[in-house]
């Protein structure tokens, strides 16, 4: 029985880590550009199709596969910024969201038209499908690696944001973009880096998603971005630690419900999860780590 509990705890951590990665990618763009990038899910789909095409040319080396997936999503993110979002940079939040939805639909249909409507198998690193034995207990390599990778990614991001000039600029720009420009830092550069980071994080998440799923289809990006968005909202939209916390909590709670709910009620898992999310928001309208904005506060 304890093995089961332990196994489910590892599952919870792994799913939570995945949601945290997804949420972080979404949050970093939102915090700086005030844009909820609903096309974030499509970055994962892009990685998936990259892995699909790699199968066609027989790329077997797992590291090459990983590099390919991450590279494609990062480049896609940079392209999105340049082509779709730069021109609407100073527009309202609603314009941004609608543009992102539009971009999302375009990308999905490009895949439908030019690649395939049905799910296609993708090539993923073989070592991620194995089991590892730690302390007499068997764990899927994928989950262990996923949790560790998320931790490393978050750490790397923290280092970037604290120790590099561009990182400082990004943190400052989240509150006051204009003054950052007064420091001589180019606005374009800051935003590009934000998108590149979000693409990188999406690519890393994609490797794990596809190692589990083994298949890509044009519309699969919707669920990841929805989870990411909910996680961000729980943690406080615009807060990076909030995104991580929201992702971990959401993922762990979902697994918890899966374990705890009896089979009859199990179908209500999502309903229960979202009801709890609603409750959290009633108590913390700005999210768990979001700043309570009082009327009259002067925001920089």
């Amino acid at each position: 029985m304890t093995e089961y509990i332990l196994q489910q705890m590892v599952n919870a951590l792994a799913v939570g880590s995945e949601y945290a990665l997804l949420a972080l990618g979404l949050a970093i763009v939102y915090s700086i550009v005030n844009l909820v990038n609903f096309a974030h899910g499509e970055l994962i789909t892009v990685s998936g199709y990259a892995l699909f095409f790699s199968a066609a040319v027989w790329v077997q080396n797992p590291w090459l596969l990983i590099a390919l997936a991450v590279l494609c999503s990062t480049l896609a993110a940079a392209a999105l910024e340049r082509v779709a979002f730069r021109s609407i940079r100073n527009a309202s939040l609603n314009t941004g969201m609608l543009t992102a939805f539009g971009v999302s639909i375009i990308i999905q249909n490009v895949f439908v038209i030019f690649v395939a409507t049905r799910p296609r198998a993708v090539q993923t690193p073989a070592f991620l499908a194995e089991i590892v034995t730690i302390g007499g207990l068997r764990f899927p390599v994928l989950q262990v690696v996923e949790t560790l990778t998320t931790a490393v990614a978050i750490l790397a991001l923290v280092v970037l944001l604290r120790s590099t000039t561009i990182g400082l600029a990004m943190r400052a720009a989240a509150r006051d973009f204009t003054t950052v420009r007064l420091m001589g830092v180019r606005a374009n550069r800051v935003i590009q880096v934000a998108f590149l980071i979000s693409g990188l994080l999406a690519g890393i998440a994609a490797v794990f998603i596809f190692s589990r799923r083994g298949a890509v289809d044009p519309f699969m990006g919707f669920v990841p971005v929805l989870k990411a968005f909910v996680a961000c909202v729980i943690g406080g939209l615009g807060s990076l630690p909030g995104a991580v916390l929201g992702g971990l909590l959401l993922g762990m709670f979902e697994v918890f419900l899966q374990v705890v709910l009896p089979a009859d009620a199990a179908a209500y898992r999502d309903a229960i999860a979202f009801s709890v999310v609603g409750l959290v928001l009633v108590l913390y309208p700005q999210g768990l780590l979001g700043k309570r904005v009082e009327l009259g506060d002067k925001e920089a």
Binding site: A172, R175, T179
Partner: peptide, 24 residues
């Protein structure tokens, strides 16, 4: 320009503010 309302970077430390000032 030292802008109106000071506009220091609230979430950054004093030191980080100065470092960012030297971004160029």
């Amino acid at each position: 320009l030292c802008p109106e309302g000071r506009r220091v970077f609230a979430d950054l430390t004093v030191r980080e503010n100065l470092i960012l000032g030297a971004a160029t």
